[in-house]
Design a protein around this nucleic acid. Structure first.
Lengths: 225, 225
DNA sequence: TAGATTGTTAATCGATTAACAATC
DNA sequence: TAGATTGTTAATCGATTAACAATC
């Protein structure tokens, strides 16, 4: 076993493929569902069938992070859920600030339950004097000029950008200069940031275009192909 | 030339890889920028460098749809933009309905400028009597019970779901039964629909988890790897 | 014409699937 | 123990990159 765990260790330190990373939140969602339904165990083939992938892929993906199952039995749902949550870095109390208190910003703050997952929005910044000073969902709105000062004095890991596209790069630059290493970007621009900063871009507009294109393709190639 | 255009034709009728489809909106965005800056021509290597991909990939991707460049010259920006827009099915006056007039729904209606791209939200549906009857951004809000009736009498191609996760599947079922073939889904559930219906899911929560995981990985493997 | 750059074919790389020995 | 199912190695498939003849 010594040898093999050595190999696991090695593998864990290679670069995890992005394709694998993107599937983890899906696994998390299905496992959460099962856990809520009090399902105690599941095999890779059952879970894969639910998700719509192959059992091979599921096992292959998990093997990047370790061995969580048991031959002849499958996986314990609670255990696997805990592992996947850990891998995803959930429940760690991550501090966020949001810049841009428009409609999208307000929607995002409210969205789903990332508070339950450990993501806490601590402050909102905007340049509109009518909004500055308000409390939205229990979170204070500060003037954008106070951004750097705030970041200096609070432990914040993620900056969320929900500003218009025109100012998104400037906001990103200011976040980066204040030491933020993770940016969650909703503005439709490709942000330029240093290599040590991670940007996750939510592609809202792109997604509609992809839908539009697929519909068009479907139409072109006939309704039954 | 007869032979080769025959080959092109063939290729155009194979299944376009999803990876290619997803890059098209990006090309569209960069070309729009260039067009606005009144750049007349660009080579595959210049454009690829801006986007951050290889020139090979860009040319390979475009070749799925035809030949839009000119040897020794490159591409005319306006022409290529027009072609990419056509491929994406933009500017075609597509009718949409939105179900769920909460914060996210309101944000999406307002978002970016898809009106300029030919996407028109014609009606909003909700089950909250306080919202029903309002006009949001010039769009009337109807009671959800009128959904089927509305769809029978109007030409709608896309249904947008911004409801809570709990009712998203039911809404999808009703849209599908009314003949909608394209669903733009913002609820964090995997919708089950027949094969001839296309669902584009905007993965908001997933995206935050991916960011969280990447940050965690970065931290684990040391700040300089 | 000479230089530049395309469109496409071939080579490489990476991701998915299949298969199976290990073992609970 | 026998049956089931994992973790992993090997085979396949698909996507990206490199190279280059065609040609503007």
């Amino acid at each position: 076993m010594g040898n093999e765990s050595g190999q696991n260790f090695q593998r864990r330190h290679q670069q995890i493929p992005l394709a694998v990373i993107k599937r983890l939140p899906v696994y998390h969602r299905y496992l959460s569902d099962l856990h809520q339904k009090e399902v105690a165990r599941i095999s890779s083939s059952e879970l894969a069938a639910k998700i719509g992938i192959t059992a091979s892929q599921l096992r292959q993906d998990l093997s990047w992070f370790g061995s969580f199952g048991q031959q002849g039995y499958g996986y314990r749902v609670d255990e696997l859920l805990r592992e996947v949550s850990r891998i995803l870095g959930l429940n760690q109390n991550i501090g966020m600030v949001l810049v841009g208190a428009g409609r999208l910003g307000r929607a995002i703050i409210h969205y789903a339950n990332f508070k339950r997952r450990g993501f806490h929005t601590k402050a909102i910044f905007d340049n509109n004097p009518e909004i500055v000073g308000q409390i939205i969902d229990g979170i204070p709105v500060y003037d954008i000029s106070e951004l750097e000062n705030y970041l200096k004095n609070h432990s914040i890991q993620i900056g969320v950008i929900t500003t218009p596209a025109t100012v998104a790069q400037e906001v990103a630059d200011r976040l980066v200069r204040s030491g933020i290493k993770g940016i969650w970007n909703f503005a439709p621009v490709s942000l330029k940031v240093p290599d040590d900063v991670i940007v996750e871009h939510v592609h809202i507009g792109e997604s509609l275009m992809v839908l539009s294109m697929k519909l068009q393709q479907r139409k072109a190639s006939g309704p039954d192909s």
